[in-house]
Amino acid sequence: MIASARWRAAPARPRPFFLWLFLPSLAAALLFVAALCEVAQYAFRVFTPGSLEAGGFTLENFARLARPIYLSVLADTLLISLATALFTLLLSYPVAYAMVRAKSDFVRSLIMLLAVTPLFTGEIVRTYAWILVLGSNGFVNSVLKAAGLVNAPLTMLYTRFGVIVALVQFSMPVMIIILAAALAHVDRNCERAAANLGAGPAKVFRHVTLPLTLPGIVSGTVVIFAWTMSAFSTPQLVGGGKVLMISNLVYLQGLSSFNFPFAAVLSLLALAVAIGALGSMRPFVSRLERKAAVN
């Protein structure tokens, strides 16, 4: 690899410190590939119940995926990830817009802080917080009961609804950052030109701003989709075992049943879905970018 690198680019210009820069990155990449290869090789090994040692090679672990439960968990995972991505987008766009376009510096900073801080408090803190908010004696039910709106507490924990509510909040900071970056790059002159030509604010938004931020919208949605596929503690704790996603099955199979081979298969499945989602979006994104360039 190094030899071919030299051969290709060496004559162009001197490259000081090339190896110094290259080797650490190469080491990190090899480590990651090695970890993924471990997962991949376990996926093809025979599971001996009650033992961590995997046996010879087999394809049986993959065949097991065809059982209805795994298809339904996969469908659930996709559904929850998709719903989360869409709701996250709907709720994040106005916030990102306000954050970029607010006239006051203070308001912009305030929105920024409120919107971004949750990203850095971590998964566990936020998941636990949602248990407090959504539980039978939780915040929402207490408020509703006090207001006389409900007699019996609403069931929100241990439902898909509850899981999605928590996941959307979990995902919004990232979406807002991506959308804000896209909005910040919109050339305001395009909007002004449209307004001068007599378009109202709604029209300007629909025909100018929205199309110009489409690449951000698409990439944000894809990132959140992949991100949600990866969520573990939220479906685990807020879902209470009634809402299963692939991540929970991997844990159940891997650390709680020590079926490492099948946990590996499920991990690969999740990886494939994430890559698939990304791949299917790529032509869409580049077409949008071309379109945006033409406009």
Binding site: I69, L252, S256, S257
Partner: peptide, 18 residues
Amino acid sequence: RAKLLPVWKDWFTENMMQ
């Protein structure tokens, strides 16, 4: 129980927890 526990867990996860 030790012999059947992994079998039971698998069956339970696949058939009851959905």
